[in-house]
Amino acid sequence: MKIIVCLGNVPDTTTKIKFTDDNKKFDSDGVQWVINPWDELALTRAMELKEDSNNSVNEITVITVGTLGTEPTIRKALAIGADNAVRIDAEPIDSYFVAFQLAEYLKNEEEDYIVFAGIESSDYNGSAVGSMLAEFLNLSSISAVSSLEMQGDQIKIFREIDGGHEVVSMSAPFVTVVQKGIAIDPRIPAMRGIMMARKKPLNVVAAVECAPLTEMLSFELPQPKPPCKMIDADNAKELIDLLQNEAKIL
């Protein structure tokens, strides 16, 4: 069985966000690009599953919709341990467009597979691609997945619900939308992995015509916060007073 990990290329989480062109565009000047944090955890879990000889995962493919500029991020995923990569050559216009491209590529997949997608991307916070892809492919999807275990062909998934979780059993093919807990520490590429990554296949395919359904008009930065009101450590009572009478919360 194959695991397909959807990969997002996003600004490093510490990036200072700026906009240009009259606030119509994100300013990518000087931005450090990384694998979307949830996708990195998804890839880590996929690796763990492949390494465990008790199950039948034999291949990990990472797939992304992006321009040439995303290749360093894809190579990083290969260095972490994915076997091969697919880049669909297009600017990711909106979630619908991205999911459509992924579906067009995956609809010809013959082997049994599971798709791992992250619960959101840390740039536009869409929380959409994985579940959209499932609908395009007419596959089941399980979202809010915090753990996925395999025993042979048996797959056990923990899906978060408000105040707890459900244990769900599934059989391939399906899409899982994963979040915190799916893996703890993301893997970091080792020197050997980086050398090997250069030789691994990165298949570039052309995008298919698809009109997006949304359009970003303009961006805005949050209003600066008024300075923090400091309260003396010996006067904790004052805080309660302020919360009650000034902030009107208590």
């Binding site: 966000i17 840390s122 740039d123 536009y124 916070n125 949304t214 008009l217 303009s218 949050p222």
Partner: peptide, 16 residues
């Protein structure tokens, strides 16, 4: 909506 995990906002048009 918020973007960049709260570090900005975007105004979007839904075309459909």
């Amino acid at each position: 909506k918020k973007v960049f995990s709260g570090k900005g906002f975007v105004h979007l048009v839904v075309l459909s």
